[in-house]
Write a protein that binds this DNA or RNA. Sequence first.
RNA 1: GCGAAAGUGGCGGAAUUGGCAGACGCACCAGACUUAGGAUCUGGCGGGGAAACCCGUGGGGGUUCAAGUCCCCCCUUUCGCACCA
Length: 869
Amino acid sequence: MRYTPSEIEPRWSERWAAQADLYGADPQSSGKPKYYVLEMLPYPSGQLHMGHVRNYSIGDALARFMWMRGHNVLHPMGWDAFGLPAENAALKNNTPPREWTLKNIAAMKRQMQRLGLAYDWRNEVTTCLPEYYRWNQWFFVRMFERGLAYRKKSKVNWCPECATVLANEQVIDGRCWRHEDTLVEQRDLEQWFLRITNYAQELLDGLEKLNGWPEKVRTMQRNWIGRSEGAEVEFAVASVADQDPPPETARERLEERIEDALEKFRAGRKVLAATEDVELTGDKVAVFTTRIDTIYGATSVQLAPEHPLVKKFAANNRKLAGDVAALLDQQKQAREAGDVGAIEKHGVFTGHYAVNPFNNERLPIWVANYILLDYGTGAIMSVPAHDERDYEFAKKYGLEIRIVVLPRRADAIHSEEDHDSLLPYTTEDSLLINSGQFNTLSNEEAQRRMAQFAEEDGFGKATVTYRLKDWGISRQRYWGTPIPMLYCEKDGIVAVPDEQLPVLLPENIAITQQGGSPLGRLPDFVNATCPKCGGPARRETDTMDTFVDSSWYFYRYTSARNDKAPFDSATAGYWFPIDQYIGGVEHAILHLIYSRFWTKVMRDMGLIKNDEPAERLFTQGMVIKNGAKMSKSKGNVVSPDDMIERYGADATRAYALFAAPPDRDLDWQEDGVAGVSRFLGRVYRFAMRHAKGANGATEATATSQALQRKLHQTIRKITEDFGGRWHFNTSIAAIMELVNELTAAESAIAAGEVPDAVLAATLRDLVLLLAPFAPYLAAELWEQIGGEGDLLRAPWPKFDEALAREDEVEIPVQVNGKLRSVLRVPAGAGESVLREAALADEKVRASTAGKTVVKVILVPGKLVNLVVK
RNA sequence: GCGAAAGUGGCGGAAUUGGCAGACGCACCAGACUUAGGAUCUGGCGGGGAAACCCGUGGGGGUUCAAGUCCCCCCUUUCGCACCA
């Protein structure tokens, strides 16, 4: 009667695979409450890893539990099948990407089936197939029509290793998200963008309502969207009068004069006054600030090296051009190294001035290497007294530092020196000084009034800026969704008409590592006809970022074979939002922000009604080994196949749930898997011994009552775990306790102390409790004990409060907080019973002898504490 | 630097609400059994001590009859963010 998962499991696996509708959802008319449980779809690398196993074990346990609780469950699976590895593999093995990918999918599907995961494969979604990606194209055209997809030349992140562009979200510390060692370069390219920034505010606001999402993920998204409230203020540019591009000698003279002004400025630290013969040029420079209230303290304006105004200034000034180039280089290097925060601040005076519209002061315009063109307006006003960076910069270059707010708690400030030692102070709990008509206002009040003032006078306004940028989706790669756009000489950019979709990805193509999109080298693909004028057109050769694929795949599951639309709205309306989404925290930003965006766009298109894709999100911890993330380079990768072969799928899955709470990192210990396997063996043998054996006992005894009590306590615990904390490690531990108690009662059972009915009911419930965690063993035993129908649809056991109740409890007795004895009293014993029992207890009396009991703490059901002196 | 989470036996972890610290499992030790197995069963297993008992949840302080749990300070680890104006 050995437990042999290697025989039991494949037998069931085959039976399940033969029933396509086994894990299918019921029709909407079933009247059952719907439950959509979803695990993130894998990239088909060809091999499941332990992270997948953990992810799917959690989801599968939940799905099975919900089925047994009588829900209508949708539990699908698919493949995130486009992406660069397929091209790399093609290069290496000379296999077409499609072939390689489909082969991997088949292999991984086998692994999933071997794991006994309860997916409805009839809804399988494979993103690299035209039946799927045609809808990516369809969505793209819809977004183009709505102005949400646009093309622009911009500075983009370029990974030399991938030979393609990356989205901001795919750059981590200046490196490619797929190539930890590869620095991302900045390049200028024409790219397609999706206007996710249109939804920045809604994406931010929506986070407040996502109470079923981990706070950590919400915070990460909040930071990523990076809203900041402030104001834009326009400064007029004033320059040394000499506007015409001067001949060489004149230019040198101008440079001298600028040097001269700079000299004076340095000597006197009073540039604001050293403005001699400057006059307005008609140019304007807008700065973005979150602290308009400190604008009277501005003593310079700082521009990003790439600011258009800088180009203009530098055109007349070779020295400046050289200096700016150096600054730009520093910034670029810092950016590429990913430590912009650590950059040493450098700057250069341009010789030009900006007029502060609030007080008409002329502030020197500098170029600084820490100002970023792509945030705000690429220009700032520098207020050294109240900003740490500005302070550092002003100290370094001797710029004036002017205090314009006085902290409310200013008691300690008695002199200028005191002030200096406190600088810079950035508090917003202060009052304005040295600020003209705004003096004595609070910061908050001043911010409002000054923005209003600027708006009324037409030189500024309150604004909101976001760190979030539009989503660049063009990729110069082959293995992705072709962007369905055409370039016609006459009609410009034209979308491919719906009836011509999908734009098929050509199959026969030589994958090489040379730059540019591989599709660009296929004349048959590139040369097309303009649908408007019928003339020749050039086809877009870039493909879409694969995150497009995963932004809406879960809608497709609800009607995966639909060839009229991306999905059926009514069906999606029934299933959405996803009740529980489960995956790794590494997708907290990328996938989870894109798919929220996509959902909002689809809602605005009228395809769906929900605002958010998923009601609840669970992010599981990583699977590690010997304290480190599993990786080939560390040689600590544990193969799921290997585990299944040695211990079975049940033991592997149950261990993945047992070894740690699901949200924490899990240290994979093979001995632990063996332990779980031993436990399953004990269950198997116990059940087999009693599956059919009735010995005619009918009389309830203390033992049978104790068994029933334990059983119902276990049912209660596990049912609560599913509804609450998801600490499946303790759920499984509870089943182990139950089984320990059952096997310990073996001799009592043999002695007829446990009625047949109790034993049979216990066995049945034990099998049901096991079903979400060890489905193979549960199915096998279910059959052995004569369970009817499929286990998955058998109702989850109900716990009986009366049977679960203890009738006698142990109450610890402390003397001065130290444990001295344990009382056995009837459950529900009142205070007087406890007091008497405690005082009468021998051990207690021994330790209180010769002392007076000052106080007795009685907590019925918990403990007794005697305070003695 | 900012923010979050965590720190409990040799190891993974338990102790939702302040109430017997170490459930359950691994490893280890002792024993039983034997068709000698990657088997099964029984018992032991935080530290000190012969015992009574004492000590023990990263460190230090505090609140409380009672603290792993609450409060204050500090240390360590992991994760996120980081010139964002």
